[in-house]
Design a protein around this nucleic acid. Structure first.
Lengths: 324, 324
DNA sequence: ATGAAAGCGCTAACAC
DNA sequence: GTGTTAGCGCTTTCAT
């Protein structure tokens, strides 16, 4: 390429990057040659030299969780706006895999990492390792407090759910969640317990923990029904669980919201499609993704470290929790 | 690293890769040093030298379409099994963006591309460009016939849907789809027309094309209802559309399946959650993703070019299409 | 079996 | 302004 244009490789680089002024003639000659040869710089070589690959890694616990694709989409879009590519990894909610993935990403010399740690405790070593080497932003879930984070205020959102239900006249609650050690699960549970305690101490203990799945929702619902002590409202830690619960309630002849109110969390597409439509907590997913990408690239002038970006979640009230 | 072990860099490389026999002593010394220094090879430098980055690009039209996350997950898993990383790109169903993404991936010297072309015609140039440089596998959607493909037999699946509905006694149909120029949309439509023609020529023309969204399903359903000529079955090109249709039918006091049968396509989580549960076409997403990854890596010994891998889709019959 | 040396394709000093 | 040169961190001849 350099010789095709009859100039030095250095000049080619300068022309293509505008790093330094170049004589118009040489410039033109270079550009012409680039055009003619359909020249495209080898980013691998660039990366080796400049120590910047133009790639950002992202580690999420489960790509198939409808929550993440939207965030991923926003991340990828924002990264591309800055000329960066997304290296996506799914940890399968496994701390070991997760650590492995982080190491692999570091080997690839990614310019930064968006990390959604699957365990608020055990994910720490991997998180520390990565944060020590590249800009890192925790997204949705978090494991340490002195590294940038972006997500919604989980506790605030769950508190809002309960307060709304109380305002609807509910006094006795049950909470269906997962045993997941993700920060989000922990925060939602804490808020549930804390808020519910004010109106009924026993409800604060009525917690069913399994997994974030339809099936667990079904199992938990059966258990609740079998106990023969239906609460006024069943609060779920996410939409899948809530829909599993709904399925069983329906097949047991119990009506939502007539016999029991029901709420989910995340406001995935499932929530609006369900019948009756499910009251849920809507998160600004695009905003979360975009902000995460911005932070990790240091694009907004703020260094990623330390900053905490809490967005407001919005309680989306639908039929499943409307007293009639 | 080389000097830390007191050996030549060449030896280090040979030990770490087992490329050639190395004296046990040196081997041990090298390994010890690697351990001690926590040495991890720089993949960028490796890539520059070996011309293989250990990354594979994937271009999909819309990450948020619930169809893709599962495929992506399977792809990523299989890639990792082979030590490769996934560079994920969302074309947003835009041919221009798509071409840009492909160029960018090539710049990054990915080892292969998994490509879901958004337009069976206009996506060709980008596809050709990429296929000329790296192993390429078309996934789910396709644009050319002489490059590897993996997906389900769309026409066969849609034919099965119609034949099943005919067996249920349906004679008059309407088809709700998208104007998308994706191969999948085209193939499903063709199969609809072809199969339906046998029982009612007019139904073959009764096609409503908008977008693959809930909203379009709603709009189309209103149109169908307003025409005051309800068919026996409304066949939808995907689940979202079908659920939009369902929503409107319900609010208009029409009952599924009592007044009209309804089918979707893709069997996303939405289908089983809907009320009534939606009959849909289930695709082996994990298998598609896994096979795509295998092919693009040349992992199964088969070169990617030319081979066509059609999987069988399975008609999932649920309440929305059961005559009672 | 091992080391020296070249070189992957680029950019950044450094000279002119 | 421009070219020459060194070197990013590896792997791979090529000698030995």
């Amino acid at each position: 390429m350099a010789e095709a244009a009859g100039v030095s490789p250095a000049t080619v680089s300068r022309v293509l990057h505008g790093t330094r002024p170049v004589h118009p003639d040489l410039r033109a000659r270079t550009l012409a040659a680039a055009q003619r040869l359909n020249y495209r710089a080898n980013r691998v070589a660039q990366a080796l030299r400049t120590r910047s690959t133009g790639t950002v890694g992202m580690v999420v616990p489960n790509v198939a969780n409808p929550f993440f694709p939207v965030v991923i989409q926003a991340v990828e879009k924002e990264l591309r706006r800055h000329g960066a590519q997304l290296l996506l990894c799914d940890s399968g909610d496994d701390v070991g895999e997760e650590a492995e993935l982080v190491r692999s990403l570091l080997d690839h010399r990614i310019d930064g990492i968006l990390f959604s740690p699957c365990d608020q405790l055990s994910s720490r070593p991997a998180l520390r390792l990565a944060a020590a080497r590249v800009p890192l932003v925790q997204i949705d879930r978090r494991a340490v407090s002195d590294v940038a984070y972006v997500g919604v205020d989980q506790e605030g959102a769950m508190r809002e759910v309960i307060e709304y239900l109380i305002a609807q006249g509910c006094q006795r609650f049950a909470y269906v969640s997962s045993t997941s050690r993700a920060s989000t699960a922990a925060e939602r549970l804490r808020a549930y317990r804390h808020t519910v305690r004010g109106v009924d101490a026993r409800s604060a203990q009525r917690v069913y923990q399994g997994s974030f799945s339809l099936d667990w929702g079904r199992v938990a619902a059966k258990q609740i029904v079998d106990e023969g002590d239906l609460p006024d409202a069943i609060v779920c830690a996410n939409d899948s669980v809530a829909l599993g619960v709904l399925d069983v309630l329906r097949s047991q002849g119990l009506r939502v919201p007539d016999d029991v109110l029901l709420t989910g969390f995340d406001d995935t597409e499932l929530a609006s499609i369900a019948w009756p439509p499910l009251t849920s907590v809507h998160q600004p997913l695009e905003m979360i993704g975009r902000k995460g990408a911005e932070l990790v690239l240091g694009a907004d002038g703020v260094v990623a470290g330390r900053s905490v970006n809490l967005f407001k979640a919005e309680l989306k009230i639908r039929e499943s929790s409307r007293r009639r």
